[in-house]
Design a protein around this nucleic acid. Structure first.
Lengths: 150, 150
DNA sequence: GCACACACGTGACTC
DNA sequence: TGAGTCACGTGTGTG
């Protein structure tokens, strides 16, 4: 299967691998300045509600407890998931979709919508011949019994 | 203007603020283990083509020169930009769009496409009465002069 | 090996 | 103030 659902595939097994980064510790740190393995006391402190300030000084006053940080991570993950879900759903609606890139899905969706709108306009025009009788092709002239129900 | 183009707004001025993080240094590090302010030699080395290995050891063998890293950042930025552009374009096509969240845009696009498809199907059915005469609603039974051109 | 695409965690901003 | 959203940089898998 060369191309089924790129998002799904990537998502499914990538998350799993991400959840177990290396067996070391939690995914904290990463930007908490220099989190050396010599000062885990900070993390321990964070775990029961301390602020994430690096004990010394910080560039900003965005103090977050570990619970809040975790919540933030979780919320963002949820959001991403929803987005991906929508992308998949959208991709199933578009016909002749070759690549499953997000950009392609989006672009093709745009084109498809435009095409559909055009089609609707054309069909509506044909169906509701309110154009001046002089201009319309006289296929059936007298047979117009106006079967509209309203 | 309460809601024009959320993406555009955020993007435009956020990037600018991001480009000047704090006046300290480049945005490197962040995950290169513990980048203490005591070892800036690494960055200096990176700048002329050295690998990004933290001199001691690394979890992976994803060695990248600073140029490559920068290129990566740039490429990703480009991709993001394209995505956002498509989102904006798509949002302009959808009628009665209240919120401009990405999720909402996506979801409403899906609904809109479905609605349009339904519309097209209905209109086509009305326009092209090629269904067996026995099954079709006999609005006009005898007046059928078969005006099809094919 | 390199270009591309993706998910992730995170700081920032809005309401 | 807190929950929701965004762009960003980054690590990593795929062709």
């Amino acid at each position: 299967m060369p191309a089924k659902n790129q998002f799904e595939n990537l998502n499914t097994f990538k998350v799993v691998k991400r959840e177990v980064p290396s067996g070391t510790t939690i995914n904290f740190s990463s930007s908490v300045n220099s989190m050396d393995d010599s000062d885990f006391g900070d993390i321990e402190a964070m775990r029961f509600g301390a602020a994430v300030t690096t004990t010394t000084d910080q560039k900003k006053s965005y103090n977050r407890t570990s619970v809040q940080a975790q919540d933030h991570v979780l919320a963002e993950r949820k959001r991403r998931e929803r987005l991906t879900q929508r992308f998949i759903a959208l991709s199933t609606l578009i016909p002749n979709l070759k690549k499953l890139d997000k950009a392609t899905v989006l672009g093709d969706a745009i084109q498809y919508i435009k095409q559909l709108e055009e089609q609707v306009k054309t069909l509506e025009e044909k169906n509701k011949p309110e154009i001046p009788a002089a201009k319309r092709p006289r296929l059936v002239s007298s047979c117009d019994d106006s079967s509209s129900s309203g």
